[in-house]
Design a protein around this nucleic acid. Sequence first.
DNA 1: TCTTCCACCTC
DNA 2: CGAGGTGGAAG
Length: 441
Amino acid sequence: MEDIKVTLQDRELWRKFHEAGTEMIITKAGRRMFPSFKVKVSGMDPKAKYILLVDIIPADGHRYKFSECKWVVAGQAEPATPSRLYVHPDSPAVGAHWMRQTVSFQKLKLTNNHLDPFGHIILNSMHKFQPRLHILKADANDSFGSQSGAFCTHVFRETAFISVTSYQNHRITRLKIENNPFAKGFRGGDESNLRGPRPFGYVPHSKGNISTFRGVIFSSPHLGRLRSEPYRHGNSGLPANSWNPEESMSRSSGSPGLLGHRSRHRDSSGAWESGRKQSHSATLPPAGGVRDCLCVTPSYESSGAMGFAETCAYVGAEGVRGSTWPLMDTYPKDRVQPEIRVPRPPRDNNFPRAVSPVVTPPGPPSMCPQGQDPSQGGLSPVPPLPPNSGAQDASANASHYHREALSAPHPHRDFPSFTSQHALYQYPVGLCTIRAHWTDS
DNA sequence: TCTTCCACCTC
DNA sequence: CGAGGTGGAAG
């Protein structure tokens, strides 16, 4: 596993969102992330089988509010939601498969419905989250594997976000509209766009009056589609944040244990879930000249404990394959109950097993400076990087820390105890405990 | 704050 | 084509 390298795709786009303070809409029905999480993988054994999965963990112990154009702490976080895993639909697949092209998690959906029956990832609104990628070596039976036990975890800090039920920062709204193909209808006219201005040129629902015609007015070619619009938060006139390129990724690895079979799926296109590969190239001009709200997000200090109660895999495509695993009864803990396999979810039932989440209270809230120091801007949802962990490459998505597989005793699972001085996260995944080691680079 | 519905769009 | 992904507006 130590040779595996993972590169975040659309990194420039992520960076732009991150600068502004990424927000992700969560809805009852489930909403995709945008930008979507896509990676390129190298260094795998071409013939070995791997499972790729994503989880999204609380980034800190705070609840936030968007106040006066910036995100501020608004109290303690809600108890952790039942955490679920999104297993890439191609899992398990051989290394050659994963390395062949971009691996997309674009079908992953976020929901605020704690009783979600679809297997989507459940999040609390107005909280900060950090997606993570886990790569597991599958065992000989294509199970999610206990035999080899090898896994590694990759974290891209620029993919952190705050969950919202409606966008708070219009800068984020604009980035979404400008870059998400599905939001094309909200784009304003543009000289380079031969289609000309058009969207919003309708009376919204029949209830609209002139004051609801913002889109018509403010997406006019005169204003240009990238100008600030007098949306609800107005403008602060603050400059855009500069992004700290040191935020990159880190990883850890160890032995996961558990997990289950899944059936294969392939998009009709044969591509990795995303169907048509699409890069959302960064086409936005720099924020300079656009006077916008600056969202200064408090940085936070690492809080050791992250709530994580149960895990649930969602294996997409062939229908929902949600399943819920037994709860971790304590936390943190290196040994978990000897669950061997994740039972496959019922074929014709989208409902994951009922769970009673174990809630792990986050560590005490840390103070979140809110100055308008641009270097602090954007989301900083991950524990601060250790001062000097020998990072070489802050801009590349190179990963460092790593640990070779050890065989997870069967049926008991042993989880390695890492002894890193930088063990900032201790977070169980499924029946394993992952301790991410945050390193520069 | 959150949900629902809508027109518009991608795929 | 139709299914389904968008943000806005209203409630």
